[in-house]
């Protein structure tokens, strides 16, 4: 009796530890639980990137399903995803709003002028396509902090009422759109039903 326990207990422990470690193999430590999902978009009052005299509040994101794209010209992945975002805008009519922040434009000891930033943005968008309805300039990166942004690119899917429905860290490519963001977007816009009806006819 005692002998069987001597075998069973270590084997059980081994299996438990192995299962725990195995689950750890596929878990991504960078995958943080988003705190903003399900919450209203944080309040803000920020200027337009191109026309700084124009201001936006969180109300600008309401009324239409919107994907807020956190980006900057210094971010290589952002430039890579730009053509695909533009493609989505053109084919599916997705409304993208840029939340732009600049790395070099340190609010405390800034080295880069706004003009310079605008110039770089115009240049990049003319080269890779411009998916944005407009760009909000997160001057002090406060709104990014409120959203729990850790880098760029990041995306927030906002429903018509201005509630954040999804926080996607990383770029949007075809695979991500098909499997993750697209289905939610279709559901929020109600296009899925239309498609289903269309197919039924």
């Amino acid at each position: 009796m005692k002998k069987t326990w001597l075998v069973v207990i270590p084997v059980m422990l081994f299996v438990l530890v192995a299962a725990f470690l195995y689950s750890g193999l596929s878990s991504d430590p960078r995958q943080l639980d988003s705190q903003i999902t399900g919450q209203p978009f944080p309040e803000f009052l920020l200027p337009d990137l191109m026309e700084p005299e124009k201001n936006y509040t969180q109300a600008a994101l309401k009324g239409e399903v919107t994907i807020v794209n956190v980006w900057g010209v210094w971010c290589v992945t952002c430039a890579v995803e730009m053509p695909y975002l533009t493609h989505l805008k053109e084919t599916e009519g997705v409304r993208f709003v840029g939340l732009y922040f600049d790395q070099d434009l340190d609010p405390d000891n800034g080295t880069k002028t706004l003009n310079r930033v605008q110039q770089e943005v115009t240049e990049l968008l003319s080269r890779y396509g411009n998916p944005y309805a407009f760009n909000i300039f997160d001057v002090y990166r406060d709104t990014s902090l409120d959203l729990g942004v850790t880098g760029a690119p990041e995306h927030f899917v906002i429903d018509r009422e201005g509630i954040v429905r999804m926080h996607h860290v990383g770029d949007i490519n075809e695979r991500v759109w098909m499997n993750k963001i697209g289905p939610l977007y279709q559901r929020l816009t109600g296009r899925e039903e239309q498609n289903a009806q269309g197919a039924g006819r």
Partner: peptide
Amino acid sequence: CPMCQNQNIADSDAMIAHDMRRK
């Protein structure tokens, strides 16, 4: 620091750590 995960925000030089320190 949410970006460089084994550092606190005092040690990290990531932009997010700068922003969090400022905050």
